[in-house]
Every structure is written in structure tokens, then in C-alpha cells.
């Protein structure tokens, strides 16, 4: 097993990296406050939905970043299968946790937005529905992790589940879209007034920074836990030569 212990032993660069990530987190937080204030104060009400349009500034960035988190899960899983480094698995798990939070947030905000605009909390709209499916896949991924005790096995299995889940996302999206558009017309492609694009982008970037910070932080905690577990294992197996987990 390529050891996490060795990575953690190089504590000094780790610490400076920690400082760098904290900067990212603080920057994200500041930008998020600024972007929200800017968006709420400056953008005009929408023709149809009035000030409700402002929910876009929290809902859409959450959705974008949830997709990004899922992409990260898939890439880290792929890299784990390629190289077999346990750290990649921990990265995938950290991204999945943040991704689950973001998809959950997206769904909650979508409902809050849907009630006043559509009059209903939930509709079988393609994007909504595929986000819900994504949420369930994240949840299943994380539950699988808690059900498997052996670190190596957990890593292998969750990498495979993450990868197959990623393959399924486009198919789910297409199928739900056909299923719904066959019933309900999706008319013109999305158009967005220029006064809305900049606050939206700023909010998205802010949330992305926060997400990066969260994933990095969670990842480092997971690495530490893994290190501790390996130390304990080494202690338990002390004296047995070549003793490592099967």
C-alpha cells in the first residue's frame, strides 16, 4: 500500500498549503457576500417573476458547482482506478460529500423558487429531476462507504460506483428530458438579460472558491484520519513482519 503516512510526514509543505487554502476560503466568503449584496441591490426585477429572479443568484451557482463536484468525484475515481493511490479515493469522497450538500441545496432552493413562480413545490422538470437523481447517487455513494470497513475495498468499490454514476448522469438527463418535453414544450433556448449575468457569474465564482476550500479541508481531514488508522494498524501488527492489511 503506497502509504499516506509518508505523505503526511512531509508536514511543512502541507502547512503552507493549508494557509493557501484558507486564503481561498476567506476570499470565497468575502466574494460571496459582496456578490450577493451587489446582485440583490443592483439587478432590476424580472418582467415575469419580479424580484424572485434573485433566487437565481444562489440556486444556479449551487447547481453549477454540484455538477463540478460530481465531475471531480468521477475524475478522482478514475485516477484511483488508474494509479491505485488511496489519497485519490479520499479526494473523491470529500468531493462527494460537498457535492451531496450542493445538490441538496439546489433542490431546496429550486423548491423555494418553484412555489411562488410555478405555484408548486415540485415538478417533474428534466433538470429538477436529474438533479434529484444526482442527489440520490451521491447519497448511495456515501452510504456505500459507511457500509464497507476495509479501506482498500471501500476505495475500489466507491471508485467504480462513482464512475458508473457519472456515466449515468447524461443518460438520465436525456431520458428525463424526452419524457417531459414530450408532454411539456420547452420553448426558446435560455436567454438572460445582461444585467443578470454579472452578479450570477460573481456568485458562481464565489461559491466555487468556497467549494474548493471545503473539499480541500475535508480531504486533509480524511488524510489525517487515514494516517492515524494506519499508525494504529502498524501498532496492532507490530512484530509481525510484512504485516499489512490483506
Amino acid at each position: 500500500m503506497e502509504s499516506v503516512v509518508n505523505r503526511a510526514a512531509t508536514a511543512a509543505p502541507m502547512a503552507s498549503r493549508e494557509v493557501r487554502w484558507t486564503t481561498v476560503g476567506v476570499a470565497g466568503l468575502v466574494l460571496l457576500v459582496a456578490a450577493q449584496v451587489y446582485g440583490v441591490l443592483t439587478s432590476p426585477p424580472d418582467r415575469d417573476m419580479g424580484h424572485l429572479q434573485k433566487i437565481m443568484y444562489v440556486h444556479v451557482p449551487a447547481a453549477w458547482n454540484a455538477m463540478l463536484a460530481f465531475l471531480l468525484v468521477a475524475l478522482a475515481s478514475l485516477r484511483y482506478l488508474w494509479k491505485g493511490r488511496l489519497a485519490d479515493d479520499l479526494l473523491a469522497a470529500s468531493a462527494a460529500e460537498v457535492g451531496m450538500l450542493l445538490t441538496g441545496l439546489t433542490l431546496a432552493l429550486g423548491m423555494i423558487w418553484g412555489k411562488p413562480t410555478w405555484g408548486i413545490w415540485w415538478t417533474w422538470e428534466p433538470r429538477l429531476t436529474s438533479t434529484a437523481v444526482l442527489f440520490f447517487m451521491f447519497v448511495a455513494y456515501l452510504i456505500l462507504r459507511t457500509f464497507v470497513d476495509d479501506a482498500e475495498r471501500r476505495a475500489q468499490w466507491s471508485a467504480v460506483v462513482g464512475l458508473l454514476g457519472a456515466l449515468n448522469v447524461p443518460i438520465v438527463y436525456m431520458s428525463v428530458r424526452w419524457w417531459r418535453t414530450l408532454h411539456q414544450m420547452q420553448s426558446s433556448p435560455m436567454t438572460l438579460d445582461s444585467s443578470y449575468t454579472w452578479p450570477l457569474r460573481a456568485n458562481a465564482v464565489a461559491l466555487m472558491l468556497l467549494m474548493a476550500y471545503a473539499v480541500a479541508h475535508r480531504y486533509r481531514s480524511a488524510l489525517m484520519t487515514q494516517t492515524a488508522d494506519e499508525l494504529m494498524d502498524r501498532l496492532a501488527l507490530k512484530g509481525t513482519p510484512g504485516g499489512s492489511r490483506a
Binding site: A140, L144, F147, V148
Partner: peptide, 23 residues
């Protein structure tokens, strides 16, 4: 192949499988 060799396999299999079954 995974769920049968893990804890709570009765729950885990549908949990993994059903979201994938939507298409």
C-alpha cells in the same frame, strides 16, 4: 458483487441500483 459482500446488503443493493435504473 459489492452489496452481497458488505454489511446491510438488503438495503445497499436497491439503494445503489434504483437511481441507476431511471433511464
Amino acid at each position: 458483487a459489492m452489496s452481497s459482500r458488505s454489511r446491510s446488503r438488503e438495503v445497499l443493493l436497491p439503494l445503489l441500483l434504483f437511481p441507476m435504473m431511471i433511464p
